[in-house]
Nucleic acid binder design. Structure first.
Length: 423
RNA sequence: GGAAAGUUGGGUGAGUGGCUGAAACCACAGGUUUGCUAAACCUGCGAACGGGCAACCGUUCCGGGGGUUCGAAUCCCCCACUUUCCGCCA
């Protein structure tokens, strides 16, 4: 959520910036300001009344001590009648507060100045490309055929055990998963991240904290009996560590990484997008989460981008970095970069990472604050990024590295797999 | 699954109706002392909202929600969670 402070301090600026996200903010913002004015007026009245009541109540105690029973009784009567009026004011306050939250939740985060204009994925800006595209022969196979040929992944078996989108990794296919997870975690550790192994099931409060609830309720698996949610990303449990927390400025930036399985219902997805490893209901991912000060968060973002770029380079995959345009960005991010690797056999780019700065938008909902040098509490900035999601990396590795002799494993990964070719 | 006890500020923890936004200790910050370090001593130290240029003032908050009362951390009800014992079990 945006803060009321942000909105009242720069109303026109915010409306203008929201337009970049193709969001017409004028009405909700005018609205929320008006409701807030009512709230403030009501609070002033209510506070004055309560102050009076408190004063009288205190005096009753004293009167009773002095044995002035009649005066005390009279005071009691007076207080009783005053309390009625407060009930209305309290109801008004509550209503206004709820309305403010409701309106604020409909307003997306403001994109920062470096976000380009644009309405959909076609308007994203290619920031950089790297790695070398490979030349594959005409009969090159897509990864789902390679997975079958070398018995690495059994999609049908997954359907039998669970359902579509839950593949079974076998032999070298399974080993490759473990190798990638270890590789990503080791690289993160080298970059100074603290490894976290969080629960993969969370309560509703955590879902709200990072914004999956209430909007994306239908995208998460839910256990009715205990009212818990399967996490769609490690971002949820790892960021919620800092829910309702006031940090010391000297502890920032906090740099955490975590490997978890991720669960996504992906309701409504279909077609070639979901073929093979392209879109799964359960997959492995290593996630980076950073909590930082507003002054330093863009420096953090840069470091995260460099880290992720280093990973795809070490895996020798052709990649590009996209700077997402306003229209294609998520509701909560202030700026977002996508990493894509090129899948030669599918002739398409596959998204493998998304690195975002949420500025204070997520922290506001999370109540994640820090104490600055003047001992004042300020909202932190939160950032996260995948480093990396496995399935599409595996797809690209299998496809791009296929040779007549077998599938070649990039050098950086060989110490982790224990083999240099899948044949 | 059965039973019991708990949930108070960054931490430990006192507090059973008004003098408690909350003792004490620890942690933290500033200062004094000291050749340095350590130690000792002094002072400060919760959050949100509202009012004010400010000093400051007011309100709310002791797991969450409701109730009793002129007045609730303290009494009553409901819910959530935690711990311990028993059972089951990786």
């Amino acid at each position: 959520m945006l803060t009321l402070k942000q909105i009242t301090e720069d109303k026109e600026g915010i409306i203008r910036k929201l337009a970049k996200k193709l969001f017409d903010g004028r009405e909700p913002i005018e609205n929320v300001i008006a409701v807030n004015e009512t709230r403030k007026a009501t609070q002033s009245k209510l506070d004055a009344n309560l102050a009076e009541l408190n004063k009288i109540s205190k005096s009753i105690g004293l009167l009773l001590k002095e044995g002035k029973k009649d005066e005390a009784e009279a005071a009691k009567q007076q207080v009783s009648s005053m309390k009625e009026a407060n009930k209305t004011l309290e109801a008004e306050m509550k209503e206004a507060e709820e309305k403010i939250i409701a309106i604020l939740s409909t307003i997306p985060n403001i994109p920062c100045d470096e976000v380009p204009e644009g309405k959909d994925a076609n308007d994203n800006v290619v920031e950089r490309t790297g790695g070398n595209k490979v030349e594959l022969p005409e009969d090159a196979l897509p990864h789902w055929d390679l997975a079958k040929k070398y018995n690495l992944i059994d999609f049908d078996l997954g359907v039998k055990i669970t359902g579509a989108g839950f593949p079974v990794y076998i032999g070298k296919g399974a080993r490759l998963q473990r190798a990638l997870i270890d590789f990503f975690l080791d690289e993160a550790q080298k970059s100074g991240y603290t490894e976290i192994m969080p629960p993969t099931v969370v309560n509703a409060a955590s879902g709200f904290g990072t914004g999956q609830l209430p909007d994306k309720e239908g995208q998460m698996y839910h256990t009715d009996l205990d009212d818990l949610y399967l996490i769609p990303t490690a971002e949820v449990p790892v960021t919620n560590i800092y829910r309702d927390v006031i940090l010391d400025k000297k502890d920032l930036p906090i740099k955490n990484c975590a490997y978890t399985q991720c669960f996504r219902r992906e309701a409504g997805s279909y077609g070639k997008d979901v073929r093979g490893l392209n879109r799964l209901h359960e997959f492995s991912k290593v996630e980076l989460v950073r909590i930082d000060t507003p002054e330093h968060s863009y420096e953090s973002l840069k470091e995260m981008l460099a880290h992720v770029e280093g990973l795809v380079q070490k895996l020798e995959l052709p990649y590009r970095i996209l700077r997402l345009c306003g229209g294609d960005m998520s509701f909560t991010s202030s700026i977002c970069f996508d990493f894509e690797v090129y899948s030669e056999a599918q002739k398409r780019w596959l998204e493998v990472s998304s690195v975002s700065n949420f500025e204070s938008y997520q922290a506001n909902r999370l109540k994640c604050r820090y104490r600055d040098e003047n001992k004042k509490t300020q909202l932190c900035h939160t950032l996260n990024g995948s480093a990396l999601a496995l399935p599409r990396i595996v797809a690209a590795l299998l496809e791009n590295n296929q040779t007549p002799e077998g599938i070649r494993i990039p050098k950086a990964l060989q110490p982790y797999t224990g083999f240099d070719i899948i044949d």
